[in-house]
Simulated scan of single mutants.
Amino acid sequence: MFDLAVDSLATKGHLIVIGFISGYQSPTGLSPVKAGSLPAKLLKKSASVQGFFLNHYFSEYQAAMKHLLELYARGDLICEVDLGHLAPEGRFIGLDSVFRAVDYMYMGKNTGKIVVELPHSVNSKL
């Protein structure tokens, strides 16, 4: 996904790396990005990549959260949860529906965050 994001950057674009899924890492813990090609790709587009680690911004967290809550209260920020009501096979319920939910997201069909509901019996075993 990182390579795809870099290749999709607009001229003067910025890619902010917030986190990654450990399953995407190589055995050495490093991304499989070809480091030699990355500077050339960024230079060609006058683009940049920046890491973001929340712990380094805790001093600003309270003010930022207050601002987000004000935006939400005014209706300028809309938070959506997509349970799959509009998905072809219906809501995402149970672990078996996770694959459908991911496909739904990759097709760009979701609005907001996708939530897969887990039956109570599954929740108690987690």
Results as ranks from 00 to 15, higher is better:
residue 1 M to C: 06
residue 1 M to E: 07
residue 2 F to D: 00
residue 3 D to T: 00
residue 5 A to E: 04
residue 5 A to S: 11
residue 6 V to A: 02
residue 9 L to K: 02
residue 11 T to H: 14
residue 11 T to F: 09
residue 11 T to D: 08
residue 12 K to T: 11
residue 13 G to C: 06
residue 14 H to Y: 06
residue 14 H to E: 04
residue 16 I to G: 07
residue 17 V to Y: 12
residue 17 V to E: 07
residue 19 G to E: 11
residue 19 G to C: 13
residue 19 G to I: 06
residue 20 F to N: 04
residue 20 F to S: 09
residue 22 S to G: 14
residue 24 Y to G: 02
residue 25 Q to L: 12
residue 26 S to Q: 15
residue 26 S to L: 09
residue 26 S to Y: 01
residue 27 P to K: 10
residue 27 P to W: 07
residue 29 G to A: 11
residue 29 G to S: 05
residue 29 G to F: 06
residue 31 S to P: 00
residue 31 S to L: 03
residue 32 P to E: 02
residue 32 P to N: 09
residue 33 V to W: 00
residue 33 V to Y: 00
residue 33 V to C: 01
residue 34 K to Q: 05
residue 34 K to W: 00
residue 38 L to Q: 01
residue 39 P to E: 05
residue 40 A to V: 08
residue 40 A to L: 11
residue 40 A to I: 03
residue 40 A to G: 08
residue 40 A to Q: 09
residue 41 K to V: 00
residue 43 L to C: 13
residue 44 K to E: 10
residue 45 K to I: 02
residue 48 S to Y: 03
residue 49 V to D: 00
residue 49 V to W: 00
residue 50 Q to N: 11
residue 50 Q to M: 14
residue 54 L to P: 01
residue 56 H to N: 07
residue 57 Y to T: 08
residue 58 F to I: 10
residue 59 S to N: 14
residue 60 E to D: 05
residue 60 E to V: 04
residue 61 Y to L: 07
residue 61 Y to F: 05
residue 63 A to P: 01
residue 64 A to D: 12
residue 66 K to N: 14
residue 66 K to Q: 15
residue 67 H to K: 09
residue 68 L to M: 14
residue 69 L to S: 10
residue 69 L to I: 15
residue 69 L to R: 11
residue 71 L to E: 15
residue 71 L to W: 09
residue 72 Y to G: 09
residue 72 Y to N: 12
residue 72 Y to K: 12
residue 73 A to D: 12
residue 73 A to Q: 14
residue 73 A to N: 15
residue 74 R to N: 15
residue 76 D to N: 05
residue 77 L to F: 14
residue 77 L to G: 11
residue 77 L to V: 08
residue 79 C to H: 08
residue 80 E to R: 15
residue 80 E to K: 11
residue 80 E to I: 04
residue 81 V to S: 13
residue 83 L to W: 03
residue 83 L to C: 05
residue 84 G to P: 01
residue 84 G to M: 01
residue 85 H to M: 08
residue 86 L to T: 13
residue 87 A to M: 04
residue 88 P to L: 08
residue 88 P to D: 10
residue 88 P to C: 07
residue 88 P to W: 10
residue 89 E to K: 12
residue 89 E to A: 13
residue 89 E to F: 08
residue 90 G to T: 06
residue 91 R to T: 11
residue 92 F to V: 03
residue 93 I to M: 09
residue 94 G to T: 10
residue 95 L to K: 04
residue 97 S to P: 02
residue 98 V to Y: 12
residue 99 F to E: 04
residue 100 R to C: 03
residue 100 R to D: 13
residue 100 R to Y: 01
residue 101 A to H: 02
residue 102 V to F: 07
residue 103 D to E: 07
residue 103 D to M: 06
residue 104 Y to E: 02
residue 104 Y to C: 00
residue 106 Y to N: 05
residue 107 M to T: 10
residue 107 M to C: 07
residue 107 M to D: 10
residue 108 G to P: 04
residue 108 G to K: 09
residue 109 K to I: 05
residue 109 K to C: 05
residue 110 N to F: 11
residue 110 N to C: 08
residue 113 K to S: 15
residue 114 I to F: 01
residue 116 V to M: 07
residue 116 V to Q: 02
residue 117 E to V: 13
residue 117 E to L: 09
residue 119 P to I: 04
residue 120 H to G: 00
residue 120 H to R: 14
residue 123 N to Y: 10
residue 123 N to I: 15
residue 123 N to P: 00
residue 124 S to H: 10
residue 124 S to K: 06
residue 125 K to F: 15
residue 125 K to P: 00
